[in-house]
């Protein structure tokens, strides 16, 4: 592994009296696939949004490729990222291909319309969708297809860093498997740095190089996916085996 792509040092964020992040320290190396696991409402999404600047952290440092994420040209910064949102977050006023090519139709990466459409169709094909889908609207697609379109949009501009926010939530096990496989393939062939948040253990095993577990606002455990089962960490053990009994208190 080479240099660090994302470095977080003591990142904190509170919403009122709710201290979501209580000092996160996490490094992700270039080309590595990091999966963040943790229960619902533990701040996984907030962590991801802090890196993107969608949420401003209260304190702490976030470095992307060695540079402070909160300074400098934010548009140029975001151009290095692709993101797959939990619900797809496709723009429902735009056709599928315009969603995929959104970045290529405006701004600094603007290309001629025909070329942008061609790239969009190629990316759709990469995620297993036929070219006929290109002219449909997001509302006409099934949940699994919407996820695929979201994935195609995330990779359309060949980003260096890709974020996946709960990529398999709401999908059946087979479709989850397909999406997991696609994510793994795409990340490997693009050589991108990936960060995935999920609580689906099948995703973790399919996608991850490294795993970090977020609990109570801090990274409870981090290490290679192979070490996960023998970690000896009671929090991680309880989570990966889905046990109701253990150090993590569950609300009944």
């Amino acid at each position: 592994m080479g240099a660090q792509m994302i470095e977080m040092q003591d990142v904190r964020k509170s919403f009122g009296s709710n201290h979501v992040l209580r000092g996160i320290d996490l490094d992700i190396a270039k080309g590595e696939s990091m999966v963040i696991i943790g229960g619902s409402g533990t701040g996984k999404s907030v962590l991801l949004k802090c890196i993107l600047g969608l949420v401003q952290p209260d304190s702490g440092k976030i470095l992307v490729d060695g540079r402070d994420a909160t300074r400098g040209d934010h548009d140029a910064f975001l151009a290095r990222f692709g993101m797959l949102f939990q619900g797809g977050a496709l723009f429902d006023s735009l056709a599928v291909w315009q969603n995929v090519a959104f970045r290529l139709l405006r701004g600094s990466l603007k290309r001629p319309k025909a070329e942008a459409r061609e790239i969009a169709i190629e990316k759709l094909r990469r995620v297993g969708l036929k070219s006929e889908v290109a002219d449909l609207f997001p509302a006409e697609l099934s949940g699994g297809m919407q996820k695929r379109v979201g994935l195609a949009r995330a990779i359309a501009a060949e980003p260096e860093i890709i974020f996946f926010d709960e990529p398999t939530t709401g999908l059946d096990p087979i479709m989850s498997g397909v999406i997991n496989e696609l994510i793994r393939e795409i990340v490997v062939e693009m050589g991108a740095t990936a960060m995935t948040i999920t609580h689906d253990m099948s995703s973790v095993r399919a996608i991850a190089d490294k795993v970090a577990m977020l609990h109570d606002g801090v990274i409870q455990w981090t290490g290679p996916v192979a070490d996960m089962d023998a970690s000896g960490d009671p929090y991680l053990d309880q989570f990966i085996h889905g046990r109701a009994e253990g150090p993590i208190e569950s609300v009944r």
């Binding site: 993101m83 949102f85 619900g87 600094s108």
Partner: peptide, 16 residues
Amino acid sequence: TMKVTEQIDALTTLST
């Protein structure tokens, strides 16, 4: 609705 379905966040991440 765009806000609730994260489309506003998606716009931002797409440099818009």
